[in-house]
Design a protein around this nucleic acid. Structure first.
Length: 288
DNA sequence: CATACCGCCTGTTAGC
DNA sequence: TGCTAACAGGCGGTAT
């Protein structure tokens, strides 16, 4: 599942190849892929033709292509989205949703998404007067992620301590801190020795600082592993970096011994999904 | 406002 | 063997 490290691998790979190219033609093959673009597929296609990709940016799990005239093409991979750069002759994927061609480059950018939780839309870039920084309005409600140069730890810790809800919910809430999904939430909590159902308000400043530093650390490790794993002209992220298989401490490891203390890892239902944790290293809160 | 929960999707796997 | 149910889970909308 693409979380911040996987999206960043995609962003940097796309940026390396796509910046400077002019979009000539767009085909939407599945309407659900542009459901957030209310004006529909025809409008989506018409508005992009002729625009040049000037930069590719990311906040949390959202990425966007900066185009001429402060237009932005926003993309979210959802659960199963992929961006592929392929020769025009490459066979069509079963779950191909959107196809882009370029005026000056004989390659296709393809958005492929089996489960259609991902999608793309077009938005005006909103420029902040003081910083000169632009963010599409679709992304305005997303908090800065731990890799953002303007990310600030202290106000985040204060916010977490003010919330009477479970810490894992807060980690997954993209309006609090962005980029973290179920996998890296579980890994961060294990590294920091914090049980996922502890309330934000029950944790100390030091514990929360350790937690956020752990989150950044685990995602940096994943990024380092994933960033080396794709070749020049084929960008493919399905949440599967080499790191994914080798280095996870708790996620997907129910029953296996904790690498710190040897106790079996537990899997528990949480928010219609699951949490993995060590029952000894991550002590549960007292019953409320 | 803060918090909780559901529906959207499809391919794979576990279990009977 | 063949079927069904569970599971994967980010996110936006809605209910409390």
């Amino acid at each position: 599942m693409p979380e911040l490290p996987e999206v960043e691998v995609v962003r940097s790979g796309l940026a390396r190849h796509l910046v400077g190219h002019q979009i000539s033609e767009v085909d939407v093959l599945h309407p659900r892929a542009i459901r957030k673009h209310v004006a529909g597929a025809k409008d989506f296609q018409a508005r992009l033709a002729g625009l040049t990709i000037e930069a590719i940016r990311r906040r949390g799990k959202y990425l966007w292509f900066e185009l001429d005239d402060n237009q932005a093409l926003i993309g979210h991979l959802g659960m199963s989205g992929q961006f592929l750069l392929l020769p025009l002759s490459a066979e069509e994927e079963k779950h191909l949703r959107i196809r882009f061609e370029f005026a000056d480059w004989p390659m296709q950018l393809r958005f492929v998404d089996q489960r259609t939780f991902g999608g793309m839309s077009i938005d005006e870039l909103e420029i902040d007067e003081s910083t000169g920084e632009g963010v599409p309005s679709t992304v305005a409600h997303i908090a800065r992620d731990p890799f953002d140069p303007k990310f600030e730890l202290a106000p985040l810790v204060t916010k977490l301590r003010s919330r009477h809800t479970e810490i894992k919910r807060l980690l997954l809430d993209q309006s609090v801190v962005s980029g973290i999904g179920n996998i890296y939430a579980d890994e961060s909590l294990w590294r920091a020795g914090i049980h996922p159902t502890r309330l934000g308000s029950s944790l100390t400043k030091v514990q929360l600082e350790l937690l956020m530093n752990s989150a950044k650390e685990v995602m940096a490790d994943a990024l380092a592993a994933g960033g080396t794993s794709f070749d020049d002209l084929y960008v493919n992220v399905n949440g599967e970096s080499g790191y994914f298989e080798r280095s996870l401490a708790v996620y997907g490891r129910r029953g296996e011994p904790c690498s710190r203390c040897g106790k079996p890892i537990v899997r528990a239902a949480f928010m219609n999904r699951s949490s993995h944790y060590c029952p000894a290293c991550q002590r549960p809160p007292r019953a409320r």
